[in-house]
Structures are given as structure tokens and as C-alpha cells.
Amino acid sequence: MENIISAKGLTKEFKVHHRQKEGLMASFKSLYKREFKNITAVNNIDFHVKEGNIHGLIGSNGSGKSTTIKMLSGILLPTSGSINVMGLSPWKNRTQYVKNIGVLLGQKGQLNWELPALETYHLQKHIYKIKESNFRNNLEYYIDVFNIDDIVRKPVRNLSLGERMKCEFLCALLHEPKLIFLDEPTIGLDVTSKDTLRKIIKKINKEKGITFVLTTHDLDDVENLCHEITIMNRGNIIFNDSFDKLSQHFSQKKTIRLKFLEPITKNQLNGFSMYLPDAYTGIIEVDPQKTDIGLQVKSILEHLPVKDIDIKPIDLESVVREIYKQDN
């Protein structure tokens, strides 16, 4: 598979107002004297996406994933570095470039709030110069896929978040882009809506061959959708490989989840390397090749007031946490 996106040495720096002290006097002082701080949101990264893939970009808040997606989609101008998407540079061939991409920003919408989504779709037809027959076919196809025949006829302000997201998603697809950037597409959605949206992304990727680049905090999105994954931390890429490689990273490891009869403090752990999400719960990650799970469990039961125990393969969240820990 060929790369549809090739970004080299991509860096984005922001100059932000930085106030040392809080309070009214500090606000007043900032009227005549301001201090600025340069923040490197993305730090000299190389990023590649293969055509036809669903590529996940994950990371904590402020890790640089949204900035990366905004540079790739032409919204932000990189401080340095080069981007080649389908042979085009987002900033040099802007009009031509944006015709070939779709963008869905999870917390922002391009639909007209007062009117039914259908009205915005008609506007898109003219903006992107979509042929009438193609427009009709695409609209019918996606309305069917999203199951939103009634929804697209209601004013957008009257729709639920899940319905609106579907309508927004359809809007990004109408002009038949080869590449779609999804910035936190499942944010704020309920479990059912998330599941529906994931199924749709998978279906479109399979049937239309559209490449997706998505940022998310929801690791279920990654697990269910992504072929390739890039993990970012503080503007740097700390993992960049296929989902299978990431799976190998954790497939051998196990998680022992414990429920305690009484609250546990860190002092009571007696040397157990345990993560405590709350006082009644403990999580231990074990590599069976290095540690005997039986002995480990026996030791825990002897030293701690365990009410319930559950041994599972390690989940993705723990792996990402581990990768972050290693990087930090």
C-alpha cells in the first residue's frame, strides 16, 4: 500500500500569553506588560498514513494530536516541515487540496444550525461542484448507511448530539473525499451511538476505500477501528506501528484485578507493584514469562484482604499507560 500522507519534520510552535501570577493586579499589569511563552505543540515528527487504512492518532490532552490533524488538513500552517498528501501540499494548493479531503471536528459543526441538514448538503453540492447525479447517489447511499432519512429533514438545532454527528459526518463525505480526518468523532456520544458510528466508519472504509485518520481518547475506537496507530506525547511520536504490533506488546501480559474487603492504602501494598484506581480496587500487570502468576496470587491472598479476584489479558488502556510511563 502506498502512503497517502507523508509528513516530514513537522513542527508547530505557538506563542502564548503567559501570566506568572493570578489576580486583579496581574490582570492590570498584563495590560501594559505581557510575557509570552513559546509552546512546541508538535515537535519535529515524521508521520505517514497508508492509503485505505484507518489510522488512529491517540494521546493525552495537549499531546499534539489535534494540532497534527489541523496541519494535515490545511487549517494550521506548520512552523517547519513538509506535508505531502496525495501529491499536494495543503498550503500551496489549498483549494484543490480541500476538495480531496473531508474533515469532521467532533466538537464543531459545519451544518447550519437553524435549517435542516439537507439544506447544508445542497450548499456543499455547489461549493464542491458535485455533479447532480453523483450528489443524488451519494446522498441516497449515505442516508441509507446512516439511517437518517427523517433526521436530515429536521432543523439541526432540534437534533440530539448523536443525530447531529451522523449528519455532520455525512456532510464531510458528500464530495467523495479520498481521505477523511476525524477529530474525536465519538466525543460525548452514548455507547449505542458510538457503536453505530464505528460500524459506519468500518463499512465506508471497506466499501468505498476511503482512508481515515482519527484522533480519539476512546481506546475502544482504536481497538475496533484502527489498522495503524500513532501514540503522541508532549508533541512527539512515542509509538507508530500497526495495531497488531501494539497487540503483541500486550498479548502476553495479564491483568490481575482485585476487589478488597476494606480500603487499602499504598503503605499496605508490601512491595506489590499495584495501581490503585480507588481504595477498594487494585490492578497488577504481570508478564507470565517472567513471573509465576500462581505464586503472585497466593502471595496477594496471604497479605491483603481480597474479596474478589479477576485475571484477564491486559487491556489497551494499560498498554498506553505503560507506553506513556516509559516515555515520561
Binding site: 487549517i75 484543490q96 474533515v103 471536528l105 466538537q107 464543531k108 461549493i127
Partner: peptide
């Protein structure tokens, strides 16, 4: 409010 991002991705 960040809505400008979406206006910048229109071929117009």
C-alpha cells in the same frame, strides 16, 4: 470558538 477551522477547509 474555533469554528473558523471549518470555514478554512471549504474550497471557497
Amino acid at each position: 470558538n474555533g469554528e473558523m477551522a471549518l470555514r478554512l477547509i471549504r474550497p471557497l
